[in-house]
Design a protein around this nucleic acid. Structure first.
Lengths: 218, 218
DNA sequence: TCCCTCCCTGTCCCAAAGTACAGGTTCCCG
DNA sequence: CGGGAACCTGTACTTTGGGACAGGGAGGGA
C-alpha cells in the first residue's frame, strides 16, 4: 500500500509560478497539490479550509505579504508547515520569515531536487534552508548573539526604522520632527544612530543600504 | 492538415518560471517549446541555434540582461520576435525594452489567455502590450514628444545618469567631482538638474524616485 | 549659419546635515 | 534594586547641500 500523499498549498501572485510549481510537484507520486492562492488573504483562508500539510509561500503578494500570512496562521493555531519560496535573499527578509515561523526558505530558481527535498523534510517536521540562505541567517544570528563584534550588523530600533522610512521619502529633519512630534535635535540623534548602525556616511547612502538589505521597501 | 506549430524559446533564470511557461504553453496545440535558457548569454546562443519563432524573455537575468539580449540579437540580424516577460512595470524598463526591439511586453502574473494571445499576435508580426504597460509607454512617448508639458517626465542626460549613480552610492559632491574629473561646482549643477527633472527635493529623494522608476538599480 | 542642448565653470549665500559633548526620562530584565 | 537600552533634549560648531545669477565651448539639426 502507498502512503498518503503530502498535501501542498501554493501561494503566489504569479500564475506562471503556480503553474510551474504544480507541474514540478506533480511529477512526484507522494505530492498532491490541493489548492492555490493568488494573494495573502486567500492563502490564509485556503489553509484554514483545506488543511494542507505544507504551504509554499511567496513573500511578495498583494493584500497581505508572506510574513503577515505566517503570523496570521500562527495566531489561528494552524498546524501547516511553511516553506517560503521567493526571489528575495536579503538578510532582513530571511530573518523576518524564519522568526515569524517558516520552516523552510527556498529561492525561486532553486533546483528541482532541492525543492522536492524541502517539501519532504519540512513535512516530516524538519527544517531546510538553501545553503546561501542558511549562511545569511547564521551570520545574522551570530551577530545578534555577540553584540561586540567589529563587523556586526546592528538591528535598528523601532523608532530608528520609523525615521529611516521618512529618510527614504526624502524628508528633511525638520519635517520628520513635525511628523513624529519630536524635536529636530532628536531626529538628528536618530539619524546619527542609523548611519552608525548601517555603516553609512550620510542619509542617502543609508537609504541605499537599507533598500539593498531589505530593511525598507521603495 | 494542421499548420506547423509556433516554435518558442523560453529564457528565464528561475526553474519554476520555465516549468510554468512550459506547462501553460503545452496546453495549446499550435505551440511548441523548442528550448530553454537560464541566462542571457545562453538565450542568445539558443536563439541562433534553434531559430525559434518567438522568444519569451525575462529582463532580470545573470550574465546578460534582457535588453542586452535583444540588442545582441538585433546585431546578429536574427528574425525571432521577442516578448518580454517580467515582473518589472516601471516606465523606464518598458521603454528600454520596446526601444531595443521587443514586440510584446507581458507582466508575470498575466492571465493565461493574455499570454497565449501575445504569442500568436507577435508570431503573426503584430505587437501586444498589456494595457497597464501600454499606458505607461504611451505616457512616456507623449512626454518625449511634447517637451513643454508641465507634468512631463524629462529624461536624464548621460552625464546626469552617471552622477545619479554616484548619488545612490552616497558619495558627496566633492567625491563625485574627483571620480568624474570635473569641478565640484559642476557636480552641483548636474545634481540640481537631476532634482528638477525627477521632481525631487533633495538627493536622497532623487535616489528613491530613480530606484522606483527603474532608472537605477540598487 | 544660427539655434539649441549638453557639458562645464565661477561666486555668493543661506539652510540643512552631521558631529561633539552633556544631559534627561522610562521601562524592562536579572 | 541596579543597570542597560531606547528614547528624548540641549548648545555649539563645521561641513555639505542646493539655489540664484552669470557665463563659455562643442556639436548636431533646421
Amino acid at each position: 500500500m502507498t502512503p498518503p500523499p503530502i498535501h501542498i498549498l501554493l501561494a503566489d501572485d504569479h500564475l506562471v509560478v503556480r503553474a510551474g510549481l504544480l507541474a514540478l510537484l506533480s511529477t512526484q507520486a507522494d505530492f498532491e497539490v490541493v489548492g492555490e492562492a493568488a494573494n495573502g488573504r486567500e492563502a490564509v483562508e485556503k489553509v484554514l479550509d483545506l488543511q494542507p500539510d505544507v504551504l509554499l509561500l511567496d513573500l511578495e503578494m498583494p493584500e497581505m505579504d508572506g510574513v503577515e500570512v505566517i503570523q496570521a496562521l500562527k495566531e489561528e493555531g494552524v498546524a501547516a508547515r511553511v516553506i517560503v519560496f521567493t526571489v528575495f535573499d536579503t538578510d532582513e527578509r530571511v530573518l523576518a520569515a524564519v522568526q515569524a515561523g517558516a520552516q523552510g526558505y527556498l529561492l525561486k530558481g532553486a533546483p528541482r531536487d532541492e525543492l522536492f527535498r524541502a517539501v519532504r523534510v519540512v513535512y516530516e517536521g524538519g527544517s531546510l534552508l538553501q545553503p546561501i540562505v542558511a549562511s545569511k541567517l547564521m551570520r545574522q544570528m551570530q551577530e545578534q548573539a555577540n553584540p561586540d563584534r567589529s563587523d556586526m550588523v546592528e538591528t535598528l530600533s523601532t523608532r530608528e526604522q520609523e525615521v529611516l522610512g521618512k529618510l527614504a521619502l526624502g524628508l528633511q529633519n525638520k519635517e520628520i520632527a513635525a511628523q513624529l512630534q519630536i524635536t529636530e535635535r532628536t531626529v538628528k540623534f536618530h539619524v546619527s544612530s542609523i548611519l552608525a548602525k548601517l555603516g553609512a556616511g550620510n542619509r542617502t547612502e543609508a537609504v541605499t543600504i537599507a533598500a539593498q538589505r531589505g530593511i525598507i521597501d521603495l
